[in-house]
């Protein structure tokens, strides 16, 4: 097997925190560590789904993968370029072959730029494009089902879903090797969502593009991803082939997520307070909300370990046949 196109190794990301007075007085923590230690890889030509609770650090991981988050440890490798800090010179090369679709599509378009200029901006930045930019813009917009007259509009003149499609077109402009798609289907109606996902799938087949696919939508993830990584409080708690995640989830958090999708009328809820990034629980970080937590969980943090080939989970009781687990 070839080596993965994207590989994060023991990646650590933290933001400065607290107000100015707090920091001057030395009160409270100076940083909030969003990603304590993440290792993850995306195989070439495949799609890895990244799923997790809101605020768990998915966007941060996506941004870190192209050097747009304060990396304070570990490394990111894309292709054969490896970067270990936010201002590493390797990012220029990495960004050329990677593109990002932002979670907030409207905000990721310059309000004073026409959509035509926006979609072709990657070409302008990369240089070397000598075709007609208007034609290229029309072609790219056509790819996502928008008519050429959108090229002359401004972001505030289109709907949320149309803005989403423009950002998809922009991300595909340079035919990248790797696409980091942050919630690419949020705000799209079901039919357009289907078209978009089919388009991404076709690109993958034709050009071998790899995707890091961040999403909340489990129904979508089930159809388009090859593997899924589940994130909780900035750590990967389970990773497995998509089928396995849905049919045999091992981590209690994954089970709750899958349960919430299937439940109607509010089942599958996770009880308990959402833990804070600055005051992480001792032992297993999911223990404050885990229905299976035991004394062991409070005492010792479970390691992320392989419980079956290609299936990792970080729970003391993962991989044990039901019933024997604990009492």
């Amino acid at each position: 097997m070839t080596q993965p196109i994207l590989e994060a190794r023991n990646l650590r990301v933290r933001y400065p925190s607290g107000t100015l007075t707090d920091r001057l007085l030395g009160r409270g923590p100076r940083h909030v560590t969003v990603l304590p230690d993440v290792s993850l890889s995306v195989e070439a030509g495949q799609t890895l789904g990244l799923i997790g609770e809101s605020g768990s650090g998915k966007t941060t991981l996506g941004r870190a993968a192209i050097g747009l988050a304060p990396i304070s440890g570990g490394s990111i490798r894309v292709g054969d370029a490896t970067a270990t800090s936010e201002d590493a010179p390797e990012w220029a090369g990495i960004r050329r072959r990677t593109s990002m679709m932002f979670q907030d599509a409207v905000a990721s378009l310059d309000p004073r730029m026409t959509l035509g200029t926006s979609v072709t901006e990657p070409l302008a930045i990369a240089g070397g494009f000598d075709g007609n930019r208007r034609d290229k813009a029309a072609e790219l917009l056509g790819l996502v089902g928008l008519s050429p007259d959108f090229a002359d509009r401004y972001p505030h003149q289109i709907s949320g879903g149309q803005a989403r499609r423009v950002t998809v077109a922009r991300a595909l402009a340079l035919e990248p090797d790797l696409v980091i798609a942050d919630e690419p289907t949020a705000g799209l109606d079901l039919s357009v969502q289907g078209e978009l996902l089919n388009l991404l799938g076709e690109l993958q087949n034709r050009l071998g593009v790899s995707f890091l696919f961040i999403t909340h939508n489990l129904s979508v993830a089930r159809h388009v991803t090859n593997r899924i990584a589940i994130m909780y409080l900035g750590r990967i708690v389970e990773e497995a082939p998509t089928r396995t995640i849905f049919s045999a989830p091992e981590h209690p958090y994954t089970r709750a997520l899958i349960g919430a999708r299937e439940a109607t009328g509010g089942g599958g809820l996770i009880e308990g307070d959402v833990p804070s990034l600055t005051r992480r629980p001792e032992g297993c970080e999911f223990r404050t909300r885990c229905p299976l937590a035991t004394d062991l969980c409070a005492a010792k943090a479970p390691a992320l370990r392989e419980i079956a080939p290609g299936h990792t989970a970080s729970c003391h009781y993962a991989g044990q046949p039901a019933g024997v687990s604990h009492s």
């Binding site: 941004r63 192209i66 747009l68 220029a92 960004r95 050329r96 990677t98 593109s99 990002m100 932002f102 907030d104 905000a107 990721s108 378009l109 310059d110 309000p111 730029m113 901006e121 990657p122 930045i125 990369a126 950002t167």
Partner: peptide, 21 residues
Amino acid sequence: ADFIVAAQSMGASRLRLAATH
């Protein structure tokens, strides 16, 4: 702003960021 970060993610130089965005 996200659109500034987006331009950075496309590899825009500081000059370009300042002048065009």
